[in-house]
Simulated assay, not measured.
Amino acid sequence: MVVHGTKVEGVKVDRETRCKHYSTEKDVIAIKFKCCDTYYPCYKCHEEVADHDAIVWAKDEWQSKAILCGKCGTELTILQYMNCQATCPHCEASFNSGCQLHYHLYFEG
């Protein structure tokens, strides 16, 4: 699926980055996986679609743009995303605050 001009891989991805696994109104981000430089809505989509294991972003890479807002298409750095209080700093869309529980799957602890 192409979301605001950016390709997002996954399972049943919609126009705002929701997927088969996470599809609430607030599930509107995609994460660029370090291992393949590809956006996916979630780790489960990566597990189902990619042919390799995920690699987490190291702390010294958190200035990299690796989060896509599914509402407006803005790319955020990892630090911007972690510090945004679950709200897009560009369009003010609400993100799922529960995603923090999965940070360890994407970002070095």
Rank of each mutant, 00 (worst) to 15 (best):
K32S: 05
F33G: 03
K34Q: 10
C35R: 12
C35E: 11
C36P: 04
D37N: 11
Y39Q: 00
Y39K: 02
Y40M: 08
Y43A: 10
K44R: 10
C45S: 07
H46K: 14
V49R: 10
V49N: 05
D51Q: 10
H52S: 14
D53F: 15
A54D: 05
A54I: 12
I55V: 05
V56S: 07
V56C: 15
V56A: 05
A58R: 08
D60R: 03
E61T: 00
E61K: 08
E61M: 03
Q63W: 05
K65G: 08
A66M: 10
I67S: 00
L68E: 00
L68I: 01
C72M: 07
T74Q: 13
T74L: 04
E75A: 13
E75C: 11
T77G: 00
I78P: 00
I78R: 00
L79N: 15
Q80E: 12
Y81F: 13
M82H: 08
M82V: 06
M82C: 09
N83G: 14
Q85S: 14
Q85K: 12
A86Y: 06
T87L: 13
T87I: 10
C88F: 12
P89E: 02
P89A: 08
H90S: 06
C91G: 01
E92Y: 14
F95C: 06
S97E: 07
C99I: 11
C99A: 15
C99F: 14
